[in-house]
Amino acid sequence: MPKHVIVIGAGPAGLETSANLAKLGIAVTLVEKEESTGGHVKQWHALFPALLPGTEALDAIRKGMPENVRVQNKTTVTGIEAVNNYFTVSGHNGWQEKADAIVFATGFQLFDARRKEEYGYGIYENVITSADLEEMFATGKSLVNRHGNKPERIGFVHCVGSRDEKVNNLHCSKVCCITAVKQAIEVKQMLPEAEVFCFYMDLRMFGRHYEELYKEAQEKYNIQFIRGRLSESAEDQDGNIVLKVEDTLLGKPLRIKAGLLVLMVGMEPLAGTKSLADKLGLTKVPDGFIQPADEVLQSNFTELPGVFVAGACSGPKSVSDTLADARSAALAVAGFLKL
């Protein structure tokens, strides 16, 4: 009997894992809770660092998807059971199938910015998130504040919902520093007259060409980087957002207004992933992200034979990291199935 693998989640990780498994002759069912595949990248207008459009990236990933990948969409996986040497996976809608191995590719959820009450998201109209800004870029909406004016100053706040024990997220979301630099540049391209500020705790330009993009942001676009974390925002009579940060390198509190404030929301583990992991008896899910059997040597294995991870469900990743991780997951699964 041909081997059958169920991949949970059809973001970049699930798509890439499935395609590679299928190329190895394995029958794959790719289960996705939404109507269409693509995960979060569907929402990203352009990807850092080279501004590749998100839709183009997804088209490339989906292109040539082998026929032995069957997409089971509009199905949220809610149950998994390990029975002898196979797994039974079931969805919220009654869908159920058996598999010889399963791959978690459930990704992440965006931090709900309203939880940082003091930042005023959902209260002050001109406070938006990085995801909102991507949507504005994608729909071609012009960048105007609630009075219909072009903002003269735009602020980006790093680490919103990341590196913050007050919201129970100790981890760094990894992609938001470079996303802020990318978005700051895009904003500056749209509004060359505007002043753009990034408020950061540390700038983590970990990837290839990220530092270059950061330098370009300074050199070509005069984007200012202020080391200090937003403590609170308020609204003035004109709907501007009044920020309180410390300029930590000067050692002085700073008060500055912005016509538009963008919160760089982080990646959070999905509650659903944790509950599925619990059902299977995975014990290493310290913060809601699934921890691989060994973070250095066995990044796609879990502590349970036949259960694998790919992409951001094991921790924040960029798309390129995710794709590489997904390909390596496919090989790990194939090895397990002794193909």
Binding site: R114, G122, I123, Y124
Partner: peptide, 10 residues
């Protein structure tokens, strides 16, 4: 200001 936002917090 969106009062509904505050109401949620309240």
């Amino acid at each position: 200001m969106k009062l509904e936002g505050k109401r949620l917090i309240w």
